[in-house]
């Protein structure tokens, strides 16, 4: 007597298909990583596009004199990094399309050299697509010697295409210790 079988699908074949599905879903979990990054890059949702430099010196002849945009500057230091880190100016009124420069100051409180890495983000997320930095200390690692202090410039242009309803943009940095680079530094000393 035969049991009612799924037509044309023997048990080993069915099991093989299900096992392939399980393995494919393991891969899908990893596929979510680039998908998420691409998604954020296109939509600017997590403000991470702020991490890249815009190569062009922005078109200063397109300055939008009709409105002001307020830019807030924010700084956070990860608890694993014994640095002080803050913006010189908390807030700036800017014209979209015009190039501005501001400065952050970092101070290494430790008695040894440490390498830090700043990770920027822009809020609201939709504004991050229109916030262009031509120069930023976050593009490279920052090495501060023992008890050294440094002024670090940021140059930026707010794209005149920034949606009208965005009146306030926050540029935020979190400074982390680059543990590998710091360890290499300690080893070479």
């Amino acid at each position: 007597m035969r049991h009612l079988a799924n037509k044309g699908s023997t048990t080993p074949w069915l099991v093989a298909k299900l096992a392939v599905l399980a393995i494919a879903m393991f891969g899908f979990g990893y596929l979510l990583v680039p998908l998420y990054e691409k998604f954020c890059e296109i939509t600017g949702i997590d403000g991470r596009t702020a991490g890249q430099a815009t190569g062009v010196e922005y078109l200063t002849d397109q300055v939008d004199e009709s409105r002001w945009v307020t830019v807030h500057f924010d700084a956070t230091v990860n608890s694993g990094l014994p640095w002080q880190f803050e913006p010189v100016e908390r807030m700036m009124q800017v014209r979209p399309g015009k190039l501005y420069e501001t400065t952050y100051i970092a101070f290494n409180r430790a008695d040894r050299p440490i390498v830090g890495q700043a990770v920027p983000s822009v809020a609201p997320g939709r504004a991050s697509l229109f916030f262009n930095k031509t120069e930023c200390f976050c593009f490279t690692e920052q090495l501060l010697g023992a008890r050294e202090s440094r002024e670090m410039p940021v140059r930026f242009v707010v794209d005149p295409n920034l949606p009208e309803r965005v009146e306030l943009v926050t540029l935020s940095y979190i400074l982390y210790q680059n543990e590998q680079a710091t360890a290499v530094l300690a080893a070479t000393d």
Binding site: A22, A24, M25, F26, F28, G29, Y30
Partner: peptide
Amino acid sequence: LIAVMPVLAGA
């Protein structure tokens, strides 16, 4: 289960 347990394993 077959669809999502592997995603947890990946995470």
